Computed example of a mutant assay.
Amino acid sequence: MNIMSEASIETAVNDRTAAAPETVKMRGEKVGVFYGDKQALFDVDLLVRQNQVTALIGPSGCGKSTFLRCLNRMNDTIDNARVVGRITLDGEDIYDRNIDVVELRSRVGMVFQKPNPFPKSIYENVAYGPRIHGLARSKTELDAIVESSLKRAGLFNEVKDRLHEPGTGLSGGQQQRLCIARAIAVSPEVILMDEPCSALDPIATARVEELIDELRENYTIVIVTHSMQQAARVSQRTAMFHLGNLVEEGPTEKMFTNPDDKRTQDYITGRFG
């Protein structure tokens, strides 16, 4: 884990308050997760605010990625996983039996830790989601969605002359931006990012962080990160997890300069984690 000085924290979080009034996009109430008999998450209450970046921090195994996967029901894919409590998207319970999980995951997209482009062309990676969801009525519309998504992901100018070459041939940072383009091609409302820069070099990481800041104008973003500098740079809100519990949550500037809980202070300054 990277240790931060007070000066670097204050520099990173300066002027990161949201301009727009806060609206709750997603809400977790008493969320608990069990893997078989083992409980991994305990009574988590957390608000995710619209058009803001919420960073989930904490030591390995603390429950932050487990909570992230609850937000688009990715835990449904684990045989012995059980989620209790309530999670809403625009006030609607996403675990209601009448919810279409495929539609939910188009509204709440996900970018994983390791870039995972499909073994298809750059174009087909981005076109896949809109095609299966019926978002384009013609090849012209599909072309427009692909171009727009690649532009929003800051990748179009780098790949516009090789759209039909394999996505796996791109650099690691480009592959991750391709995965972001693939996620936003189906017009999600929320984007979940599980350590999206952990496999990237510093230059690629900086580009993705710039992209996250641009994307929050149109999307709500929740990011899991081990990098305290990254959390301070990209987020407006930060939530600290420890041993499956939500320790505290608040504006990033306060969390990094004057947290309420000593565990948060100790983790941020590198005393444990």
Rank of each mutant, 00 (worst) to 15 (best):
S227T: 06
H133R: 14
F112P: 08
P119L: 08
A55N: 05
M26H: 12
H226E: 00
E158N: 00
L163Y: 02
S148Y: 01
P119R: 11
N14K: 15
N125H: 07
E22S: 14
L71T: 09
K262N: 12
D100Q: 02
F112L: 15
E22H: 03
I94W: 09
Q236L: 02
V44G: 11
P59H: 11
T269E: 05
D100S: 14
M255E: 06
R152Q: 15
Q174A: 07
V108K: 00
E92D: 10
Q230C: 12
S149P: 08
R131E: 13
Q113Y: 04
S60D: 11
P166Q: 13
V53Q: 04
D15F: 08
N125S: 12
L135N: 05
C197L: 04
R97E: 14
V13T: 14
T257Q: 03
I180W: 10
S65W: 00
T140Y: 04
R207E: 13
Q174T: 06
S198E: 07
P202Y: 05
P166F: 10
R271T: 01
L68A: 02
D93F: 03
V247Y: 03
I221E: 05
N80S: 13
V186G: 01
E147F: 08
A18I: 12
Q175G: 03
R82E: 11
N98E: 12
D260R: 13
G167S: 10
I99Q: 13
S138K: 12
L41E: 09
Y123D: 04
V84M: 04
T269M: 06
R73C: 09
V208R: 10
G169S: 14
V13K: 01
I223R: 04
K139Y: 03
P21L: 03
D96K: 07
R73Q: 09
